[in-house]
Design a protein around this nucleic acid. Structure first.
Length: 255
DNA sequence: GTTGAGCGTT
């Protein structure tokens, strides 16, 4: 039973989710499970991964069966050195089962009886200040470089859109690409053909121009969510590439 | 090979 989150949340009825932050990017659920399981009954361990790269986002969710055990793990593992990084363990708040928190005001934390009378690390937490959660997932990291690049294309986006609106219809370009990449779509990411400068035959000067509109971006994300990223996202990084290369054609990358 | 504030999936 090392596959957590493989089939979604197993049983979230009386479990308490803990948020583990500051973990290594290569830390897996199997690495955290034995660590947290020592302090209590761990029901599930889930590590969110990036949709595009599939890399770990640097935090995990450990679900305990009892709040007291969870609190104990928080107190014991909080600030602990894991994989060379000192992790931060705290109770999850914005989780899917956050309703119980506001309803019963349980806060998923231990009752006032125990309270956090033990010892708490006075770490500076400016999380409440940054309420823009949507901003964090975009510029989570080195993505900032892309962010600036997107802004740069933003001004050209309008010009680019006008050009192709009166000259080339989107259906024409897509129809051709879709026909050619019929078999590539299965193995290749859709982001590639959009970001490939060589693919833009009708606008070689502009080169890479994702021209991402909010609506398009949302749709694109949904597609990636439902079909493009079915890979396992749990403690099994072993067979992540085995199920994504059914094409015997090695020239799929070359045009 | 990179990054480091944060809150999650079938």
């Amino acid at each position: 039973m090392s596959h957590f989150g493989r089939s979604g949340p197993p049983d979230i009825k009386d479990t308490y989710s803990l948020l583990v932050l500051n973990i290594s990017f290569r830390t897996t659920a199997d690495d955290l499970y034995p660590l947290f399981d020592k302090y209590g009954k761990v029901v599930d361990v889930f590590i969110p991964r990036d949709r595009r790269t599939g890399e770990s986002r640097g935090f995990a969710f450990v679900r305990y069966k009892y709040a007291e055990e969870a609190q104990k793990a928080v107190d014991r593992l909080d600030g602990r050195s894991v994989d060379g990084r000192n992790i931060m363990v705290q109770f999850a708040k914005y989780g899917p089962n956050a309703e119980r928190i506001q309803k019963g005001r349980i806060v998923e934390a231990v009752p006032k009886s125990r309270g956090r009378s033990r010892s708490r690390s006075p770490r500076p937490r400016h999380r409440d200040d940054h309420r823009d959660r949507d901003h964090r997932r975009r510029s989570r990291s080195r993505s900032k470089g892309r962010y600036e690049r997107d802004r740069y294309y933003d001004k050209e986006k309008d010009h680019y859109r006008r050009s192709r609106s009166r000259s080339i219809s989107p259906d024409r370009g897509r129809g051709r690409d879709r026909r050619r990449y019929s078999d590539e779509r299965k193995s290749r990411s859709r982001s590639f053909d959009s970001a490939s400068p060589s693919r833009r035959s009708y606008s070689p000067k502009r080169s890479a121009s994702p021209r991402r509109t909010p609506s398009r971006d949302a749709s694109d994300d949904k597609y990636s969510n439902g079909k493009k990223s079915p890979r396992s996202q749990s403690a099994s990084p072993k067979g992540r590439d085995d199920s994504r290369s059914p094409s015997p054609h090695n020239s799929a990358e070359q045009d």
